[in-house]
Design a protein around this nucleic acid. Structure first.
Lengths: 170, 170
DNA sequence: CCCGTTTGGTTGTCGCTTCAAGTAACACCT
DNA sequence: AGGTGTTACTTGAAGCGACAACCAAACGGG
C-alpha cells in the first residue's frame, strides 16, 4: 500500500523492527483482556474491570473512594463507572454513600460481601496473571516491560490518572 | 467460590518488580484500544478492528480471504467477524463471495472502495502508532518489546493463530 | 449409498460501553 | 441575593461483541 508521493507529509512507514514490535503489541492487547475476563468470569462471576474496581476500593482508605477518583484509577468514563457500580450495588458488593462534604459527590464503599468477593477472586486471578504474563518473562524482561510501560504511558496517559497506583500506591 | 481456607497451593503474591510491570501492562492494555479507536473513528469512520480486517484483506492474495482464516488473523470469533463483515458489506467496502471449491465457505473480498478506505486511513493510523507507541521507545526497547511479545504470545495464543502475520506475513 | 460427525457460517438475544442529555450542587462575581 | 459557569454524577438510547442455537455442506465409515 505504498501510495505515490505527494501527500501533505510523507508517511514514514514502519521498518521491520518497528513492525515486529507493533504487531506483537497489538496481538497482546487484543488477546489479554479476553483471557483475564474468561478466568474471572468463570471462577468469580466478575469482569476484569469489575474486579479491578473492587480491588481499587479494597486498597483505599476506609474501602471508600469518590466516583470521580475511582473512574480515574480504573481509566473509566464516569457513565461507565456509574453503570458498573449500580450493578455491583445490586449484587451487594458495593454501597453508594452520598458524600457529606460535597453533596454533589457520591462515595463508593466496598461492603463486606464485596471484600470477600475480592479475597476469593484474587488467588485465581493472580495465578492467571502469573501463567500468562509474569512467568513467561525473565526478571530482566520484567524491568524492561516496566520501563517500556512508563514510556508509553507518558503519551497514552499524560495526566497520569491511572498511574496514581504506582506513585502513592499501596 | 474457592472453598475453604488455605487453598491447594499458597498463592504467590506479586513482588515489587512483578507488580510494577503488571500494572503498567494493564494500563497500556486498557488505554491503547481507546486511542486507536478514537483516531480511526474520527478520521476514517472505522473501528480499529474494522481497519485491521480491511488491512488483512489488503495484504492477502487477490485481496480475498476465507472467513475462517480472516477470523484467525484478526483474533475474532466467527460470529463477530460475520457481523462486522456484514456491516462493512453494507458500506460497500467488502464483498462476500461464495467459495467455489467449498460451498460451505465464504470468501471476503476487499472492494476498490474498501482498498481506498484503507489507503486513506493508513497514514493517519501509522502516525498515531508512531506518536503513541513507536517514537517514545528506543530501538533497543523495540527489540525488547518484540521478544517480550513473543514470550507472552506463546501462552496467550498457543496455536499461533494471530502470528501467521509474522511468519508468512507480507 | 446412507447416516453420523465435523466443519463453515449466519442469525438472534443479552449484556456492557459509549454518547448525548439532563439534574443537582458548588463557586465565584457583582 | 442573583446569575453564570463548572463540577459530579445519573439516566436513556444506540451499537458492538459474546454466547448459543441453528442450517448447510463436506467428510468417513459401514
Amino acid at each position: 500500500m505504498e501510495s505515490e508521493a505527494t501527500e501533505t507529509a510523507e508517511t514514514r512507514w514502519l521498518d521491520q523492527t518497528e513492525r515486529d514490535a507493533w504487531l506483537r503489541l497489538v496481538a497482546v492487547v487484543e488477546l489479554l483482556p479476553g483471557v483475564l475476563d474468561a478466568q474471572l468470569r468463570g471462577s468469580a462471576g466478575l469482569t476484569h474491570f469489575e474486579y479491578f474496581v473492587l480491588a481499587m476500593l479494597s486498597e483505599a482508605r476506609e474501602r471508600t473512594l469518590r466516583m470521580t477518583t475511582l473512574a480515574q484509577r480504573t481509566n473509566a468514563t464516569l457513565p461507565r463507572l456509574s453503570h458498573v457500580v449500580r450493578r455491583l450495588e445490586d449484587r451487594g458488593l458495593v454501597e453508594r454513600v452520598p458524600c457529606p462534604e460535597d453533596r454533589r459527590a457520591t462515595n463508593a464503599h466496598l461492603t463486606d460481601a464485596g471484600w470477600d468477593a475480592v479475597v476469593d477472586a484474587a488467588p485465581g486471578h493472580v495465578e492467571t496473571v502469573r501463567t500468562h504474563v509474569l512467568d513467561p518473562l525473565t526478571r530482566e524482561q520484567l524491568s524492561q516491560l516496566r520501563a517500556i510501560g512508563d514510556s508509553l504511558l507518558a503519551t497514552l496517559d499524560p495526566e497520569g490518572r491511572m498511574t496514581a497506583l504506582f506513585d502513592g500506591g499501596a
